[in-house]
Computed example of a mutant assay.
Amino acid sequence: MTSRLALPGSVLILSAALPILGHANTDYFKCQTEAGTVFSQFPCNENATEQKVTHSNPRHQGPKEDYGKQLTELEKENKRNSINMQIRSTKHKVVMLKRERSAKTLAEEQRLERLMSDDERKALKKEVQVNIKDIERRYSQRIKETEQKLARLEKFLARFQ
């Protein structure tokens, strides 16, 4: 009586599974743990007792399929999808960084085209060239790091193909 009160969810799950599992002989394990009674398709500890759920027609056998391969393949597919999303995001980031770099470079170059005297233009031209080099250096480093991350993601994805 106390084990039922301690684990009403487990008993409820097991009793709900009985009609589904009732079409064939099914083995499961019952274990006593610190958390209470646990039911599992694998032994939980050395004190696990094997239990059997049987159908009213014992000659009827259920399918003997191992779904481990299918579950592993689903897990790999989910991992591939996750990596593909990261790759798309990283590629988008590279495009945005290049676009931002181009816009800032153009803005610096356009400063030269404004109306000004020749002396001002010469002084500004040097300043603009320094600024463009700085922009190129900063964005080139960020783009390089992002492309390296992209290469690592694609290499990681290749392991799941």
Rank of each mutant, 00 (worst) to 15 (best):
A48Y: 00
E77C: 00
D27Q: 12
T26V: 15
L157I: 05
V130S: 11
K144T: 13
A24W: 01
L97W: 00
I135S: 00
T49W: 05
N78T: 07
N47C: 03
R142Y: 04
L115A: 14
S10W: 05
Q51K: 12
L150D: 02
C31Q: 00
F160K: 01
E127T: 11
N45F: 06
M96L: 15
S10D: 01
S3H: 08
F42C: 07
F156S: 14
Q32E: 12
K122T: 10
A107S: 14
Y139T: 04
G36M: 01
R138E: 14
K104H: 12
A103F: 10
R152W: 08
R152V: 13
D27T: 10
Q41W: 09
T146L: 01
K133V: 04
K79L: 12
A158S: 15
K98D: 03
F42G: 00
F42N: 09
Q86A: 12
C31V: 00
A151G: 02
L18Y: 06
R4P: 00
A151N: 04
I87E: 06
N84G: 05
T90Q: 08
I132N: 02
V94G: 02
K69T: 09
K69A: 13
K91E: 15
Y139A: 04
T146F: 01
P58Y: 03
R121W: 00
Q61H: 12
A17Q: 05
P8G: 01
E127M: 07
L21D: 00
D66A: 00
G9P: 03
K76M: 11
G62V: 03
P63G: 09
L97I: 10
E100Y: 10
I13R: 11
N57K: 01
L12G: 08
L112A: 09
Q148D: 15
K30F: 08
A107V: 06
E109N: 13
A35F: 02
K91V: 07
A16Y: 01
E154F: 01
T37R: 05
K126A: 11
Q161N: 15
R88V: 09
R121D: 02
G36A: 06
A103I: 10
E154H: 05
L12D: 09
E73D: 14
S40R: 01
E77L: 12
